[in-house]
Design a protein around this nucleic acid. Structure first.
Lengths: 143, 143
DNA sequence: AAGCTAATTGAAATGGGTTATCAATTTCAA
DNA sequence: TTGAAATTGATAACCCATTTCAATTAGCTT
């Protein structure tokens, strides 16, 4: 019995609505995907190639895109690769990044998040996730 | 005489510090780049190929990356392409992005910016720039 | 349970955006 | 002006992601 009942139900609902099929590969990929907060297709491929050496990389990509359409995942372009975020994972955090020494401080701010919701609502959007990065100099690098 | 004295001075300072040279192409690309708020390498290439048909696309990419290192530009991965933002442009704006249809709404919010400053100050940072992207569904894509 | 049809798969080819290569050219300090 | 080092343009190479296509599989229908 899977630990991801809710997500699997969501996926099956989406599959049913679009005449798509529930396959062994999709189950395998869903289980592995839900264990992480975010992952790339390549990483998932390497993780799963142990369990199923014949699983193709194209299938990983296709399935992750399917998850995005089903609302389980969200693609985010990061550097040269695409990160697939696990939407069900709460506890999102933002980053303060020092452009001099590379130091990274994670933070969370409810007030900012609330204002984001307001901006979105004003424009008719419903936010699923966001990305906030502040670039500057940390205390040590200000001289 | 160029209209972009300040930015050109910044670039020359960076070039001097790193034993790099001030070339006709870099001047040309800087002038064109500073006229916009953000642009892709391909767009800049097409704009400039009128003025200088021999200018190579590789030079555009190299120069835009140089601008990022000099602090004049900021790369932002957007869909499959990379947007290069003009950092000197005042009235920095953030983005609301529909993950379904790709629609992009630009916005500006002073309250959010103020809160960002507070978070930064609390952590001893001085912010130079930032990136805020809200991902979700636009009004039409919510069904 | 078997048959049928459409969806799915894996492997490999293809695609688009960006970076690396390299000989020729240009910058700039001496 | 000269020479060493950086830069350029053209093109090849690269990387990640998608498309193609014949073989397989899911899941309704009988």
């Amino acid at each position: 019995m899977s630990k991801h009942q809710k997500e699997m139900a969501l996926l099956k609902e989406h599959l049913g609505k679009h005449q798509l099929k529930y396959t062994r590969q999709r189950e395998l990929i869903l289980d592995a995907f839900l264990k992480q907060e975010h992952i790339t297709a390549e990483e998932l491929y390497h993780q799963l190639s142990r369990k199923d050496p014949h699983l193709g990389l194209a299938t990983i990509y296709r399935t992750l895109n399917l998850f995005c359409e089903a609302g389980l995942a969200q693609a985010r372009h990061f550097g040269t690769q695409t990160q697939y975020d696990n939407v069900s994972h709460k506890g999102h955090h933002d980053h303060l990044i020092c452009t001099e020494c590379g130091k990274i401080v994670e933070f969370e701010n409810c007030d900012i998040e609330r204002l984001q919701e307001e901006v979105a609502a004003r424009n008719g959007f419903v936010i699923k996730t966001h990305r906030l990065e502040l670039y500057g100099l940390c205390s040590r690098c200000q001289h």
